Deep mutational scan, measured.
Amino acid sequence: LKGVVVAGGVLAGAVAVASFFLRNKRR
């Protein structure tokens, strides 16, 4: 169960970083 929580956190972080980079590329 702990691994699932960690994986979810990593996935959420990756999505946040990806969206951040996409926003920067638009400018």
Rank of each mutant, 00 (worst) to 15 (best):
L22Q: 03
K2P: 13
F21W: 13
G13P: 01
K25Q: 15
F21Q: 02
R27Y: 14
A12I: 12
L1D: 02
K2R: 11
R26T: 12
N24C: 15
G3A: 09
V4G: 04
L11V: 14
S19L: 14
K25F: 15
V15K: 04
A16F: 05
A18H: 03
G13C: 07
A12F: 15
V4M: 03
R26V: 09
V17Q: 01
R27M: 12
L1Y: 03
A7L: 09
N24K: 14
A14D: 00
L1N: 05
R26D: 07
G8F: 06
V6G: 03
G8R: 03
A14P: 01
R27A: 13
V6D: 05
V15E: 00
F20H: 09
A16G: 05
V5F: 09
K25C: 12
G9Q: 07
K2V: 09
V10S: 03
K25Y: 14
V17T: 04
A7P: 03
V4Y: 08
G9P: 05
V15S: 02
A12C: 12
L11H: 01
A12D: 01
L1P: 06
L22E: 01
G8L: 07
G3E: 07
A18V: 15
V10P: 02
V17E: 00
V10A: 14
G8Q: 07
V4F: 09
V10W: 14
A7E: 02
S19C: 13
V17R: 04
V17G: 01
A18Y: 09
S19V: 14
R26F: 12
A18P: 00
R23N: 09
G9S: 12
A16P: 00
R23A: 08
G8I: 14
L22T: 02
F20Y: 04
R23D: 02
A18K: 02
G3V: 10
V6S: 06
G13H: 07
F21V: 10
A18M: 06
K2W: 11
N24T: 08
S19A: 13
G3S: 06
G13L: 11
G13N: 08
K2N: 09
V6H: 04
R23Q: 06
V5Q: 06
A18G: 03
A14W: 10
A16E: 02
K25E: 05
K25M: 15
N24W: 11
F21Y: 06
V15N: 00
F21E: 00
V10I: 11
F20K: 03
F20T: 03
V4H: 06
V17S: 01
L11T: 03
G8V: 07
N24R: 13
F21G: 01
V10D: 00
G13E: 04
A12R: 07
F20D: 00
V15F: 15
V17K: 01
K2D: 02
L1H: 15
V10G: 03
R26E: 10
V6I: 14
L22K: 03
A7F: 10
A7D: 02
N24L: 12
A7N: 05
G9C: 06
G3H: 10
V5D: 01
V15Q: 02
L1C: 13
F20A: 07
A7I: 12
L11M: 13
R27P: 11
A12Q: 05
G13T: 07
V10E: 01
G13D: 02
V10H: 01
G13Q: 05
G9N: 06
R23E: 02
V10K: 05
V15A: 14
A7M: 09
L22G: 02
K2H: 10
V5R: 08
K25S: 14
F20R: 06
A14S: 04
A7K: 15
R23C: 09
R26G: 14
R23M: 03
A14Y: 11
V4S: 10
V10M: 09
A7V: 13
K2T: 06
G13M: 06
L11G: 01
G3I: 09
R27T: 15
V5T: 09
A7W: 05
G3K: 12
V17P: 00
V5A: 12
K25G: 14
V6E: 03
G3N: 12
R26Q: 13
R26C: 15
A18R: 03
G3C: 08
L11Y: 07
N24M: 08
L1K: 13
A16I: 04
L1S: 09
G3D: 06
A16M: 04
K2C: 07
A14Q: 04
F20Q: 04
F21A: 04
A16K: 06
L11D: 00
V17N: 00
L11N: 00
L1R: 11
R27V: 11
A16Y: 06
F20C: 07
V15I: 15
A7S: 10
A16C: 08
G9D: 04
A16D: 00
G8H: 14
S19Q: 09
A14C: 15
V17L: 08
L11W: 08
V5W: 05
L11A: 02
G8P: 03
L22C: 06
G8N: 10
V10F: 13
K2L: 10
K25V: 13
K25D: 10
A12N: 02
V17Y: 08
V6A: 12
L1I: 06
V5C: 11
A14V: 11
K2A: 07
V6P: 01
F21C: 05
A18T: 10
V6N: 04
V10R: 06
S19E: 08
S19T: 10
R26W: 11
R27Q: 15
V6T: 10
G8C: 11
A18E: 00
V6M: 15
L22A: 04
V15L: 12
N24F: 07
V6K: 12
V4W: 13
R27N: 14
R27C: 15
A16N: 02
A16Q: 06
A14F: 06
A7T: 11
